[in-house]
Each structure stands twice: as structure tokens, then as C-alpha cells.
Amino acid sequence: MKFIVSSSVLLKNLSHINGVVATNPIVPILENFLFKIDSNDEGGVLTVTASDLQTTMTTQIPVEATESGAIAIPAKLLLDTLRSLPEQPITFNIDTETFGTQILTDNGRYKLAGENPIDFPKIPAVNKNLSVEISSDALASAINNTVFATSTDDLRPAMTGVYLQLSEDQATFVATDGHRLIRYRRTDIQTSANTSMIIPRKALQLLKSSLPDNLTVRAEFSQSNASFSFGPTQLICRLIDERFPDYENAIPTKNPNVLTIGRTDLLTTLKRIMIYANRTTHQIRLSLKGNALTLSAEDLDYANEANEKLLCDFEGEPMEIGFNAKLLAEMLSNMHAKMISIQMSAPNRAGIMVPADKDENEDILMLVMPVMLNTYA
């Protein structure tokens, strides 16, 4: 079996799906890409598949080929070779009996050992119970605003993914790790049926890194799998079969104390102050009085201390509240509004961060749990 392909086109497409390949997979065959050639009168199509059993990505590349066939090729070895080659047509010669593979370039020959493609796991089928078309920009924005807040604790599997609720008038994406909660809504994603599912973090991160701009993504969902197709690429992942926490009850409704401030001003000040916070707790103190916000941090172990005052717009009773600076900074970094509002009720109740100026099709709410302030002031 033989086919010819552009080295840069092959590298670009393989880079999109390489993130699926695990470094130490349970099944050794998963260290490979599955190459499948379908030849036709116009030349041929190479379908490349990468899988880790939970997530599968495929991409299609036009090639010059005279016969059909399949082979599993070591992913790392092939990618390292392609990265070091200049742009040129390269020829793959494959022995279908031994699966030995030769890559021929303008002035070189590389031999590597392929594997029997029959051992590669089959691509899971997605019985299309529901399908929806989403713009790639809207989907990328939803992933960017939520996936960072998912949990890494495998003992709470429901929190290791993003909860997606689809309805006739909107789509709601929710992520939480127990310390913070993000609820992101879009009114330009609508379906004919009401449904919900939990999409794993890894699948969404892979999707985020490979989504092109200004393209329509076709999302299809079944009871156990989700599929996202865009251009020549498709991602299929197994959904998390767990019950997501009742997040609506965690969001406090009465928050009379409202701080409105420039997001960039708060973030840059926070980054300076958190250098002086305790290395373990990352605790910072927000003191609100009148139109002034004082951020302070102290680390008694090293006698480090810092405070800074900012002008703000504050409505409510004077109060002091403690937050984990690391979580707060990450949330502010993922928000894009110029002005933000932080709504609070009491020092032991969650704070709610929302953009002061909302976009037309999106609604974002970020909740962060407070940390107990030390009694020393």
C-alpha cells in the first residue's frame, strides 16, 4: 500500500488530534494513530484516528493513493519526524503483511514498525437522539468560561466535567469544583428538546484547542456519547454518567452589598497583593467602606504583609470578606468585561461576580466561596 501527502498538511491535522493520545495508555495500541486509506478516482482520502477509549478524534486529509488499506503508526515517532521535515510531498510505503512502514522524502528514507489495525478500538457510534448546530465562536466562548473551574478530584466524577443543559430558548453550561461555580448561558444555542448531560473536561479542552474560527459545529448527543463535527475533524467522547449537584440552590439570591469596579484594575492589584499571601491558603482580605476597597494579605510565617487601596463604587454596609486570591484571579482572568460587579450578603456567604455590561447573547455568573478570615486584623 502506498500514498503521497504533503508533510505540512499531515502535521497540521495530526497536531489537532494528538492531544487524545495518552502517554501511558492502558492498551499499547493506543500509542498509535490509525491510518485508513480509501482510494477513489480522484486520488484518495486518509482518515486518521486517535483514541484513549474515552475520547476519539478523527480527521480526513486528501492524498494521492491507488489502493485502500489501514495501518496503526506510532504517534510520537511520526510527529517528531514530521516536525523536523521542511514542507514537501512525502511518500508512505506500507507492507500490509508485516506492517513495516517506510517514509520517503526528497533526500531521506525513514523506516518504522507499524501495527495491525485490527487491534485498534472501533469508533463508538452516536445514536443521534438530539443534534444541534453551534457557531464555533459561541462554543469556544462557553468552554473558555467554564472548563477552568472543573474539579480534578476523581472521587467526585460529576464535577470533573461541564454540565450542559439544552432547552428551547437557551443553553446553560455549568462547572464547579466545590470552591467556585460558573454558570454560563447562551440564548443563540437552542434545541427542540430539553435535555442535560456532563461532558468530560479532557474532551472540552481538546475541542477548545482544535476549534477553528467562524465555522458551524454540528453537535450530536446520545444516551452515552457526544459527537462534535467541524470541517474534516470529528470528536466523540463518552459522557459522564453521574448526577450533577443541584447548583441553583447554591447561588444566593439576596445580595444587598454590591461592589462595582474595573476588572483589570482589580486583577492587577490582586496579582501584586497575592504575592504576600500565605502560600497554602492564598487568603486575601477585602475591606469595603464608602467608595474605597482595601485589599490586604499577610503571611505570619514569614512576616510578609501588603495592602493596597482602590477607588470603587460600593453600595451596602461596610464589610470585610476573605477570598482565595488564586481562585479569584483565575476567575477575573477568564472574564472579559471592562467593569464587573461582586454581589455579597455576609462574610460567610458566597460572593457572586457578574459583568456590569452584558453581551447580547450571553449571561455569565461566577460564584466563589469565601475563606474564614483570621481574627487578627
Results as ranks from 00 to 15, higher is better:
Thr81Pro: 08
Pro124Met: 03
Gln102Glu: 14
Ala337Thr: 05
Phe148Arg: 04
Val371Thr: 03
Ser151Gly: 08
Asp169Pro: 06
Leu300Gln: 14
Leu85Thr: 00
Ala346His: 05
Asn18Tyr: 09
Arg272Gln: 14
Asp38Pro: 10
Pro318Asp: 05
Ala306Lys: 10
Lys202Cys: 10
Ser210Cys: 11
Val5Glu: 01
Ile103Val: 04
Asn334Ser: 08
Leu211Asp: 00
Leu215Lys: 13
Pro25Gly: 05
His179Thr: 08
Gln283Glu: 13
Tyr247Asn: 10
Ser222Tyr: 11
Leu53Arg: 13
Arg349Ser: 15
Glu115Ala: 15
Asp313Pro: 09
Leu78Lys: 02
Ile240Phe: 04
Asp357Ala: 12
Lys111Asn: 15
Tyr247Phe: 07
Leu78Pro: 00
Asp241Cys: 13
Phe33Trp: 05
Ala346Trp: 02
Arg186Asp: 05
Asn374Phe: 11
Glu298Trp: 12
Met335Gly: 02
Ala149Ile: 02
Lys208Cys: 14
Lys326Thr: 07
Thr176Tyr: 05
Glu133Thr: 12
Arg185Ala: 12
Pro245Phe: 01
Glu87Val: 06
Ala219Asn: 08
Thr58Tyr: 00
Pro252Ala: 12
Val217Gly: 00
Gly316Asp: 03
Thr176Ala: 04
Asp154Gly: 11
Asn194Trp: 04
Ile342His: 02
Ala325Lys: 03
Pro347Trp: 03
Thr176Cys: 13
Asp52Ser: 06
Asn13Ala: 09
Asn255Ser: 08
Ile17Arg: 01
Pro25Ser: 02
Val217Asp: 01
Ile73Asp: 01
